Amino acid sequence: MPLMDLSYRKNIKNLLKNEQIKPLKRLGQNFLVNNKAIKKIIKAANLNLEDLVLEIGPGLGALTTELAKRVKKVIAVEKDKNMVKLLEENLRFENLEIVNKDILKFVPRLKNYKIVANLPFYLTSPVVRRFLENVKSKPQQMILIVQKEVGQRICANPLKMSILAISVQAYAKTEIVSYVSKKSFWPVPKVDSAIIRITPCLSNYTYLYPKKREIFFKIVKAGFSQPRKQLINNLSKKLMFNK
């Protein structure tokens, strides 16, 4: 169990002040300080006592605490050594494993797991792409807090799709679960956030094997190279074929 309520803004400020630690902008550290938002994430993940959860960037552990109460095991991957130290000192759960590593270098040797994370904004695209394309063991689903605009782009319908939307929806079903005010974080970021659900469609990987994937995304990038021009003109120019 946690030694204090880690979703309470005052507790977080006092804890960091006592440890002489400041949130790092370069790591996108904006701690979730809203219990309602945490409950929305938990509900969206549809957790049970048999679940294995990979949490990315647990920070001080507000979300980690609620995950550990509800699942079989939580693996929390945190890059910042200061945060790891505080997590180890303040969280007491037998089913919690804390890993001090960059998530982009972490190799998950897991099966039947879910990803639940309050992602630093700069990590959204690299993390989603890594776990949809590169790791052998795909998650059953990802429940992520991301920048509102990015969440809307990822979950866009066909008429409003971008390269980002296609690169995610080629592999998975996406949906926006809810929105979270920027005031739900400390330090307060400049923009609001969205909770999104990404559910990989394993059948899609049969068609998008590596060589075919390369061709597919080459065509997609060519199509979006000059959005205001006709598609046939973009494709013929970038892929060098006659119309």
Rank of each mutant, 00 (worst) to 15 (best):
R197H: 10
F106V: 04
S162R: 03
F216R: 08
Y122D: 00
K114C: 06
K114W: 04
I143D: 00
S125M: 03
I115N: 05
L144A: 09
K211T: 06
C201L: 15
R213L: 12
N118M: 08
K105F: 04
T124M: 02
V135R: 04
W186L: 05
P187V: 08
I166V: 15
I198G: 01
T124V: 09
N118H: 11
V191K: 02
V191I: 11
A165G: 14
I166P: 14
R197L: 15
P158N: 05
K101Y: 02
E175V: 11
A170P: 12
M142L: 15
K136E: 15
P126G: 10
S193V: 10
D102Y: 12
C201G: 01
Y209S: 12
T174F: 02
I98L: 06
S167Q: 03
Y179M: 07
P120F: 09
R197C: 13
K211G: 00
S162P: 09
Q147W: 05
Y207A: 07
T124A: 05
K148R: 12
N118P: 10
Y122C: 02
I154C: 04
P158Q: 05
P200I: 07
S167Y: 03
F216Y: 14
K211S: 10
P210A: 07
N100D: 09
Y171L: 11
P108N: 12
M161S: 11
P108S: 11
S184C: 14
R129I: 06
A156G: 13
E149N: 03
V127L: 05
Q169D: 01
S184A: 15
Y171Q: 10
P126Y: 08
V168M: 02
